[in-house]
Structures are given as C-alpha cells and as structure tokens.
C-alpha cells in the first residue's frame, strides 16, 4: 500500500516549502505502516539539498482515513505531539494540514523515530528480558506526562478544559453515547457497568492533567534493549484526571495475559513509579472508578470498530479483530469484576 504518484508530487511540493533549510526535496522511499486503523500512517524517506549539503530525513505522515477506530480531530493529535516533544520521548511534530487542500484529506507530518518497534498487545512476552525495565520507564513516562500543567501546553487551545468535578461525567457521557450509537445489539454487561459508574462517581482530581487517552502496551516504540524511544498515538488526548490514563494502562487487556502491569511488574510498583514521576498521590477510591471506566471505554471503541466494519465503511481487518476479540475480552473482564463485587459497588 503506497501513496499515489499524484499524492507524492503534491506532498513533495508541500514539504519543500515547509521544511526549513530544504530545497529540491524528493520522497525517495515510502510505504504504509500497518496498525493505524484510526489514521493512515506512512513512512517517508525524503532527500533534499540544504545549506550544509545533501540530506536525508525520515518522516511519518498521518492521514485521515474514510473511517477509523476513533473519531478525533487531527489538530488535537498534532497539538499533543507538539506539547510533549522534549518532555517525554515523543516525536517532533513538523506540519499540519487540517483541510483537504494538499492530499484530499487532513494530515500531519512528524519526525520518524528509527530503530524501534512496537509490540503487539496480544503477544505473551514482547519485551523479553527487558520487560521490567521497559515497564518501569513506561509508568514513569506516564507520570511525567501527568505532571505537566495543561496550561503549559497547546492542549487548552484544541480541547475543552473540564471542571475537575465533572471530568468523570464528561468522559462517561461521551463513551456511553458512543456505545448507544454504535452497538449492533444490546450490551447488558457494559450497560450495567455504565449504570454502576453513574451511581458511584469518583472524587475529583487534585489538579487536571493532559491525558494521552490511549497509553498502553503497543502504543510506544522500544529499541529491543530496554529503552522506550517514542510514545505514539495521541489521537485521543484531552484534559482530565490523570488516573484515567493510569487505569487504561493497567487494564487487564494490556497485561499480556498476566496479572502484572505491562505483563512485567506489580501494580504496586507501577503505581509507585507513576506517583514518583507525576508528583501525584494515588487515590484508590478514584482509581476503582477509572479502572472500570477504562473497560467501558474499551468496549465503546471495540463496538465502534464492529459498527464500522459491519457497515462497510472501513474493511480494515484490524477493525474486525478489535470488534470481535477485544469486545469479548472486555465483556469478560467487566462481567467477572462486577459479578464478584458487592451489590452496587465498583469492586
């Protein structure tokens, strides 16, 4: 799967005029990267002349598809990359085109991080001997993201800043609405979970944070030697309670078949790493709410995947897989949890 010759020509002209100290730019290699069902993602190798002589550079192009796992604005994702580049291992965002003028669809371009790989979240032991090192970094980076004041980022310009008392309601209303709109059949388990969440609202966060929105195994590049190189997939970034990201990262779906955080370290160790880096204190009462919410949000994403695939809007097999396997897994995770919980309680 490649960009068309027409797209390449337009993109070359755009990049030639956009990149600093670059002229005569040519795309010398390009291919589509698999897995980005929420965006078409392409790896580009560009060559150009500069004041210092001929140069080559690796870039990533993220272009909106016809349909996706997640309906978000590309300006939001672009702002998130810009906000956290230099604060965490996050690629540099280079250019955003929010209309159809260049490639027929909105897109943005960012730095390509070479030498890394993303794990499959469904692989048993993807980080091998480096699993514990990777896991500690993973939760420390998440804490570093949570530490940043949202008003010290570009995020308030592209997303709402919620009342801390209403973080939970805003997220739950949104994702419950997605489930109501997209579920192909009645969903008694997640519907019960939504009622349970509404009946047990969490305490508000002490302060707001930028939420990555999909911080999990599989959404970062690592070098195979114990170092996280790049945190990716910021398309669901927003402002809210930092426990939302922590709960998503610790959801059983992302634990590689174990009961350990990232399949590697205890939840207590993960939380300690997050607390140390974030400067926040873990609130177990609030976390119980956000951890159940994480599974509800997952269900919403998977049910949307099923809908998009069934409606024929997007036949990417990733959507079929997510809509089938992940739906069943999260249904099971929620059912086991709430069947064992005291009546009306979160856990």
């Amino acid at each position: 799967m490649m960009l068309s010759a027409e797209d390449i020509a337009r993109l070359e002209a755009f990049l030639d005029s956009t990149l600093n100290d670059a002229w005569g730019l040519k795309i010398v290699d390009q291919f589509r990267i698999h897995g980005g069902a929420s965006r078409e993602t392409y790896s580009l190798e560009v060559a150009y002349d500069s004041a210092g002589g001929p140069k080559r550079r690796g870039l990533i192009l993220r272009r909106d598809p016809e349909d996706s796992l997640i309906d978000t604005e590309r300006a939001l994702e672009f702002a998130a990359y810009r906000s956290f580049h230099g604060r965490a291992p996050v690629p540099e965002a280079i250019a955003l085109v929010a209309d159809a003028s260049v490639l027929g669809k909105p897109f943005f371009v960012m730095e390509r991080i070479d030498g890394g790989a993303a794990a499959s979240p469904f692989q048993a032991d993807p980080y091998g001997a480096h699993r514990e090192t990777i896991a500690r970094q993973f939760f420390a980076h998440l804490g570093a993201i949570a530490r940043v004041d949202p008003y010290d980022t570009e995020m308030p310009g592209v997303v709402d800043t919620p009342d801390p008392e209403r973080c939970w309601a805003r997220e739950l209303d949104y994702w419950a609405g997605v489930i109501a709109a997209d579920a192909l059949e009645p969903q008694p388990i997640v519907e019960a979970a939504i009622r349970r969440l509404r009946a047990n609202p969490p305490p508000p966060p002490k302060r707001l944070s930028v939420i990555h929105g999909d911080y999990r195994s599989g959404n970062f590049l690592h070098d195979g030697a114990g170092k996280i190189l790049a945190i990716l997939d910021w398309e669901m970034a927003h402002i809210g309670d930092a426990l939302e990201d922590l709960a998503w990262a610790l959801d059983p779906l992302w634990s590689h078949g174990s009961d350990m955080a990232l399949g590697a370290i205890s939840h207590a160790e993960a939380i300690a790493a997050w607390e140390q880096a974030s400067g926040l204190t873990f609130d177990p009462v609030a976390f119980r709410w956000w951890s159940l919410f994480a599974s509800v949000k997952g269900m919403a994403i998977w049910l949307s995947s099923s809908r998009a695939f069934a409606d024929g809007k997007n036949t990417d097999p990733v959507l079929a897989f997510s809509g089938w396997y992940c739906t069943l897994r999260h249904d099971d995770i929620i059912a086991r949890r709430l069947a064992a919980a005291p009546r009306g309680a979160l856990a």
């Binding site: 069943l328 249904d331 099971d332 059912a335 069947a339």
Partner: peptide, 22 residues
C-alpha cells in the same frame, strides 16, 4: 440481580475465543 450477574459472567466466559500463543 445476583442470578443475572451469574448469567452474564458465565455467558461472557463461554463466548471468549482464545488466541494461540504468539
């Protein structure tokens, strides 16, 4: 309520499909 949760738990478990080790 308890009987419904038992049904939902067992039903979700029965529907699960297993990925082979990767």
């Amino acid at each position: 309520d308890a009987e419904i949760w038992s049904l939902l738990r067992d039903g979700a478990a029965a529907r699960l499909v297993q990925l082979p080790p990767m």
